[in-house]
Nucleic acid binder design. Structure first.
Lengths: 197, 197, 197, 197
DNA sequence: TATGAATGAGGTTTCATTCAT
DNA sequence: AATGAATGAAACCTCATTCAT
């Protein structure tokens, strides 16, 4: 593991352990077994570390999204895959924390990050749309993007509830409703949308 | 406008303009036309200002939630009300930013705040459940709380997308899908849930 | 009780309760049931309050010292009186704290206070000398002032030990040794001093 | 001289020049030729600097106390040693100021410091007792600790008088009386105590 | 007399970043 | 490559004092 990787791993660990506010350069350096000065041999500044971290995290998500699509299976298999990947997200605390750390950064005015997020959201929406087309025959309606945004938002919102520990419902119950949505809710709702046009 | 109100207004303004990290005591004081010392005449410390802000914001939300329920109208009227309140949330930037600021604080380990959020989420879930019962005849199923959590999460997640400016879909389109959900999606999905038991 | 008295009483209470560091003008004002502004009608500044307080405290001590001397009694009676007044000092926590508060102020460079303390120490040394003359026939030796300073210092030092709670010995034991000093130690030691000349 | 030592030396200097209240981090940093931030490279916070200073000062005192005892000399030599160390204490202004600074801190409620002082006082009392046993044949009486506390208190009290500059008597005169006490006062007074039992 | 809002200097602390070694 | 001492700006907070009312 070379310098940059070591630093990224350390940053990930520090953020998921102590939150992004405690992710000082010094803390990252210590976790990486380096001096603070050494950090600056690999990265121009702290933000660059976080950018790299985000890139990793985002390309991870994209890989998953792509993974779902590339599965050439029956509809049942795809649905199972979606279910599984979604459930896994509940348990990826480090990644989730990281994601919300970056969201926070954007809220503070970081335009670079915002650009990256915009791209990624566009891509995720696209993936979800493809899945909806494959699974439920969603047509090319005016409201496609709104639907995928709601679905994406729902997962994000619910993940946040779990991170914050403000949702008393078990992950199992949450997933059961999600499965019902995939099995019985969405087929009908996609039909509604298709008719609208 | 007395001291505390002036400070709260200034804090709200600073947060919605520059984000919560730039909401320093100095910045708030300047915005309020006060010296930093004067702030401490009214508030013991910075956190107390933000807590007050949160309380305002949360009790606002609760007031809205209660407002919807207490409307003794036809189902159509209740639905209209829900739609309107939801749409309004998209435009309350200061409040929304504040909410995510506090979410961030909780992720950093603030247990007090977590307690407040837990309470509020419980209450909101209850309100949503009541509405679902009234509008769609939702019965007392095992998965009620999971459903309301998903709905609450969806709105939160979508609001975050708009704050982050990562959602290219217009608020109008988002609301149109939401209306379809209320009109045609939820009636059917609630029926699915009722049958499950 | 007029303004100044009320303020002095409040200051005394605050200092003995929370120590001199917490004796802020605001705290004193609150304890006195006044606003901070009102304090400045009675006193030019905070130091003046403390000066007055010191004057009170010092004249108290002096009154005691004088009281001992003015007692026209047998030597036994005077000794009993000295013993009693000394023992009482152990229990006057507020006054003792106050005294050490002012000592601290002097160490910080307050020259006015120093002048007052110098005067008082001179006076106390004089009183002690008178008592030694009366009780033990101390003559006018070159070392009289050194002896009285040691005696005065011993009491001050031991009082401080008790304030700090670093002296495990009971007040009773301390007083028993003090009594032995008065009864058997000093008569002989004064004789030693008288012979030295 | 490394960082910590430089800082401790600076702190000692600032305290003896301007008193403990003016011993701000800024002042210490300036005296040490450092920026304020640099201080925190070596010490977690200001208190830790002062604790280190106290430890130094206390272990110094203890070393002296032990030094006296370990001298295997004639009684005359031990007495000379005690006299010399005591006289030296009069001139260690920085250490003395420091001691009273910490006493003040204890009066403000610092329990940690109190614990350290309690330990040290216990130890010093023990040393003094040993010396009294060696020099004057003090037996194991009930009042031993009271006697040592008085002696310790006397020195502390007299040192304070000199710090406060309220004692007009010269150090020479004070020491002369102290010598008489060691030579003629204590032998007789210890005999009194031994008989008491 | 009395209030209490307001000031402003100065306190401790944090931390990204630089730089001599 | 690497160290870690050092910087300096900026954060929160305290408090004696002033002043319009």
């Amino acid at each position: 593991m070379d310098g940059k990787e070591k630093i990224l791993a350390a940053a990930r660990k520090v953020i998921s352990k102590h939150g992004s506010n405690r992710a000082t350069v010094r803390a990252i350096a210590e976790e990486a077994g380096l001096s603070t000065g050494a950090i600056y041999h690999y990265y121009k500044n702290k933000d660059d570390i976080l950018y790299d971290l985000l890139d990793d995290s985002l390309s991870d998500s994209t890989r998953i999204a792509k993974g779902i699509h590339q599965q050439e299976g029956t509809k049942t298999k795809i649905k199972l895959d979606v279910l599984q990947k979604t459930e896994e997200r509940f348990y990826k605390e480090a990644e989730n924390r990281l994601q919300y750390h970056f969201a926070h950064e954007i809220l503070l005015g970081n335009k670079d990050l915002q650009g990256k997020f915009q791209e990624k959201y566009k891509e995720w929406n696209l993936r979800i749309e493809e899945i909806l087309v494959n699974l439920y025959g969603l047509e090319d309606t005016r409201l496609n993007k709104a639907l995928t945004s709601w679905l994406l938002g729902a997962v994000d919102g619910v993940i946040l509830q779990h991170l914050l520990e403000v949702n008393e419902t078990s992950v199992d119950d949450m997933m059961e409703v999600f499965q019902l949505l995939l099995d019985k809710g969405l087929p009908q709702f996609v039909a509604v949308l298709n008719e609208e046009e």
